[in-house]
Design a protein around this nucleic acid. Sequence first.
DNA 1: GTCTATAGCGGGATAGAC
DNA 2: GTCTATCCCGCTATAGAC
Lengths: 199, 199
Amino acid sequence: MTKQNLGETIIMNAAQLFKKQGYKATSIKQIANASGCTTAALYYYFEGGKSEILETVMRRMQPEQMREAKLQELPPRLGDLIGARMEIMKDNMAVMADRIRWLFMEMANLSDEDKLPFQKQLLGFQSEIKADLQQYIADEKQADQIAWIMFCSFFGYQQLGVTMGLDAHADLTVTKFTEAMQAVIFADLMDLPKRDDAA
Amino acid sequence: MTKQNLGETIIMNAAQLFKKQGYKATSIKQIANASGCTTAALYYYFEGGKSEILETVMRRMQPEQMREAKLQELPPRLGDLIGARMEIMKDNMAVMADRIRWLFMEMANLSDEDKLPFQKQLLGFQSEIKADLQQYIADEKQADQIAWIMFCSFFGYQQLGVTMGLDAHADLTVTKFTEAMQAVIFADLMDLPKRDDAA
DNA sequence: GTCTATAGCGGGATAGAC
DNA sequence: GTCTATCCCGCTATAGAC
């Protein structure tokens, strides 16, 4: 526990506890203990109490979320694009998985307005995949469809494998999943070269 | 509220509340109110209190879960298989989505042993899709891969669309998603007829 | 079987000392 | 800024009447 601003420490510990247990199941006493202070100190930094701590945690979490999805350089063949994307995600999978699991938990209690930023980020993720694909695929609708399938299936894989623990029972490593994705989706597109006239 | 066994009524109402709010966030008073009795009555039926109610809900939920996934009759062309599966799921989607969302919430607090039945059911779901596919596709590995992608992407779609509320922002109806799945995955397999020599 | 009443505990929040 | 002490409330659970 680096002795920096206590307010920051509180937020970090709260974020961790919320993610692990959920908002309702986490008490402010737990947060105080983890932060090495008393509940009273929490109210010095966050007058609004527990709910203000939640708001702050949510606000802090967003800019960081899923930022990793951007590819620096596109590979020459479309088939390698999936591999490259998967590679990036593999590293951050554990982090993303429990963050998303938590969002699922709290989503039910969020107002439509509060949901918005998270939804936007998810949509942005699909858009990025689509944009990448359009570097290879001319047909916009096709790129869109493929992007959705890639996005949904990766998302589902992550939830099933990591959160639900299926990877322990099925032989469903990231590598195998990537192979399946490449084999299934891109059977006939796999070798498309990067288009030169792309945006 | 059909006036049957109160014990059953309690379990049904508890299940609904747990799914909506999570175990921790649901009070026994809420359960009692919803069931038209007092908390004391709960303890007549479930001596173990709230935790015994949870156990019972979990035990009851399993056999019912995802039962709908079985197809009675396979369509003549492979391309229609996805449509048929989607059609079935569409109806039960809302039910499944919040049940699964709940499982996600509680998964973190379940022991590995308790997780097992749910994991088995999920795996069984993939197996069913695979078995269907093998009626059309000879190559076992290919069928397995396609089944995983279908399973994961449907799962992801459901979570993203319904639980995260993306369907409100993207034009991501079940129909469109089904089309995408058909277009993307089965571009070149779409018209495969049902094999006669299949198991 | 189901109720009323209540004990006991842990949670969120605040006042006031330092 | 941070603590101690405390309030009040809602929750789980139980005792005992009907």
